[in-house]
Computed example of a mutant assay.
Amino acid sequence: MTESGSSMMALLFAAGVFLVIVAVGWRSVQNRRIVRMQGADGQETVIVAGEDDQVSSVETTVG
């Protein structure tokens, strides 16, 4: 295989790996729910839940 041919194969392989990583990450993001709540004191709580998770209540404590 020529040098340009092997370079092209390397670029195609790298692009393929990159696309697989992006696809897996995109699917992961799409199956998440993000809830942001802000208390009276300005403190913010962020909840990251899966698509099938049931969040019925949130309890916060100040330590």
Score class of each variant (00 low, 15 high):
residue 11 L to Q: 14
residue 26 W to Q: 14
residue 5 G to I: 10
residue 43 Q to G: 07
residue 30 Q to T: 01
residue 62 V to K: 07
residue 50 G to L: 04
residue 42 G to W: 08
residue 15 A to W: 14
residue 20 V to W: 01
residue 41 D to R: 07
residue 11 L to D: 15
residue 62 V to P: 06
residue 23 A to Y: 13
residue 16 G to R: 10
residue 26 W to E: 14
residue 62 V to F: 02
residue 33 R to V: 07
residue 17 V to D: 07
residue 21 I to D: 02
residue 36 R to F: 08
residue 59 E to F: 05
residue 7 S to I: 03
residue 25 G to N: 14
residue 42 G to V: 01
residue 24 V to C: 03
residue 23 A to D: 03
residue 48 V to P: 00
residue 47 I to E: 05
residue 16 G to D: 08
residue 17 V to N: 03
residue 27 R to N: 12
residue 11 L to I: 13
residue 31 N to D: 06
residue 33 R to F: 07
residue 28 S to W: 11
residue 59 E to D: 09
residue 14 A to T: 14
residue 31 N to E: 07
residue 17 V to H: 02
residue 53 D to Y: 06
residue 33 R to M: 05
residue 7 S to T: 02
residue 6 S to M: 01
residue 7 S to Q: 01
residue 3 E to L: 15
residue 26 W to H: 15
residue 7 S to W: 01
residue 52 D to W: 06
residue 54 Q to W: 10
residue 62 V to Q: 01
residue 43 Q to N: 12
residue 13 F to P: 12
residue 51 E to S: 11
residue 52 D to K: 09
residue 9 M to P: 05
residue 45 T to Y: 12
residue 27 R to C: 06
residue 9 M to Q: 05
residue 60 T to P: 03
residue 18 F to A: 14
residue 32 R to V: 06
residue 4 S to Q: 09
residue 51 E to A: 14
residue 40 A to E: 11
residue 16 G to N: 11
residue 5 G to A: 09
residue 26 W to P: 05
residue 48 V to L: 08
residue 40 A to C: 04
residue 15 A to Q: 14
residue 11 L to E: 15
residue 41 D to Y: 01
residue 62 V to T: 02
residue 42 G to Q: 10
residue 27 R to I: 09
residue 1 M to T: 06
residue 28 S to T: 07
residue 28 S to A: 06
residue 32 R to W: 10
residue 43 Q to Y: 10
residue 43 Q to P: 00
residue 32 R to K: 12
residue 41 D to C: 03
residue 48 V to C: 05
residue 44 E to W: 02
residue 30 Q to N: 02
residue 7 S to K: 02
residue 46 V to P: 01
residue 10 A to I: 08
residue 50 G to S: 02
residue 59 E to S: 12
residue 22 V to R: 12
residue 12 L to F: 11
residue 54 Q to F: 13
residue 37 M to L: 12
residue 12 L to I: 00
residue 55 V to E: 10
residue 45 T to G: 11
residue 49 A to K: 07
residue 44 E to I: 02
residue 51 E to N: 13
residue 61 T to W: 03
residue 23 A to C: 05
residue 34 I to N: 00
residue 27 R to T: 08
residue 47 I to L: 15
residue 4 S to C: 06
residue 41 D to L: 04
residue 21 I to H: 04
residue 48 V to W: 05
residue 2 T to M: 00
residue 14 A to V: 11
residue 34 I to Y: 02
residue 19 L to Q: 03
residue 40 A to F: 07
residue 63 G to W: 12
residue 39 G to W: 00
residue 54 Q to N: 15
residue 41 D to A: 01
residue 16 G to I: 00
residue 24 V to F: 09
residue 55 V to K: 12
residue 12 L to A: 09
residue 5 G to H: 07
